[in-house]
Design a protein around this nucleic acid. Structure first.
Lengths: 193, 193
DNA sequence: CGATTTTTTGAATCATATCAACGTACGTGG
DNA sequence: CCACGTACGTTGATATGATTCAAAAAATCG
């Protein structure tokens, strides 16, 4: 149970079998069918989700109704509206399943309890969020310093498995491009080789 | 000494006077003149800097020599190349002073010691980095979902004091625009009101 | 005051967005 | 298993917006 979760957990911080048993008690599992929501903007994000299997996305919707993908999450990744989770404010982002998913959930209240019982879990949390921050910073740097074509190459190089499993127009959304533009960029890149 | 630093610190997590004395022992102060480097790409980032007074910026330089500003830091903000600081790898970003600055430094080794003596300091670190992550995420969302003009308005609304103190072409760099484009956007916005 | 930095403006070029249409692949239900 | 409908990717034409290069005006600093 939760094999991948504990594998990834122990990669960051080593936990004893005892601790892992305690942690297990605070986790719940959830299955999601393709296209189902885990979270809708306006609702409160009550849990952080770890993807054991499948693919998820997090996105915002602007005034004109267009979706903008902020984040993908494949196996081994965490996903949530962290601001909503931490503050209890309504979420600004939506999260749904791009494929049928097996998730491991850690609810807000479970997290509170867990941090008391297994203080080391905070170290894991810090490591996790630090990694997320650094990745986000790199993405910002790519957005202000690279051309769309370079950004696309950077993306498929960094996340080849996302590129394989996710529709192209969603990658365009993630990169801040129209689907047509990404299609033409790919054509240009293919011709250049 | 370090008044603003401790003020900001206690806003996140309350520390006793005892603890604050211990923390003080691990801090060092540094003055930087305008245009001086705190860190150059290629060097290892040996300290996290807290800005007591002044203004700093963090930026990357691309192959063609153009600078791209990743982050500003005014009074009360932290700045560092976090990846380099954590791993000891050479920094990819430069940090320099936009005004004469008073800084408070926490070196890598001091941080290690401090976390042992005052474990609560890790809670502060987590809070700090979580805030930084959420800000970065909002910025990414703005970049993929707003027009340059909207992004500029968002920026000056969120950071009016940065907009007041920093040259306009640096704000253009932060927003991923050419200085000429930002100038014209401002003209359009002024005409529209 | 002189020198440097910063901002603005203009003109030409280049790139992206948009709108529309088409072809294709996919999966779902009959 | 086929047929239909939906989702996806590509292509074209056009319009819009950003970049670039150059120059001048304005502001700032010593």
């Amino acid at each position: 149970m939760y094999e991948l979760f504990f594998q990834k957990l122990n990669e960051k911080v080593a936990f004893t079998n005892e601790e892992q048993k305690v942690i297990t008690g605070y986790l719940t599992s959830k299955k999601l069918r393709k296209k189902q929501y885990l979270l809708q903007a306006g609702d409160v994000c009550k849990a952080i989700a770890f993807v054991e299997k499948g693919a998820m996305r997090e996105y915002s919707v602007d005034e004109s109704g267009a979706e903008h993908i902020l984040q993908f999450a494949l196996e081994g990744w965490l996903i949530s509206d962290l601001y909503s989770f931490m503050t209890g404010e309504p979420a600004t982002y939506n999260i749904d399943a791009l494929e049928d998913c097996d998730l491991v959930l850690l609810t807000k209240s479970a997290q509170g309890e867990l941090l008391k019982k297994v203080p080391k879990f905070e170290t894991y949390t810090t490591a996790q969020i630090t990694g997320a921050y650094l990745a986000m910073q790199k993405r910002v740097n790519a957005m202000i310093s690279l051309t769309p074509g370079q950004r696309y190459l950077y993306f498929i190089n960094l996340y080849p498995n996302i590129a394989r499993r996710v529709p192209q127009h969603m990658i365009a959304s993630y990169l801040g491009l129209s689907p047509e533009t990404l299609s033409r960029i790919r054509k240009r890149l293919a011709a250049a080789q």
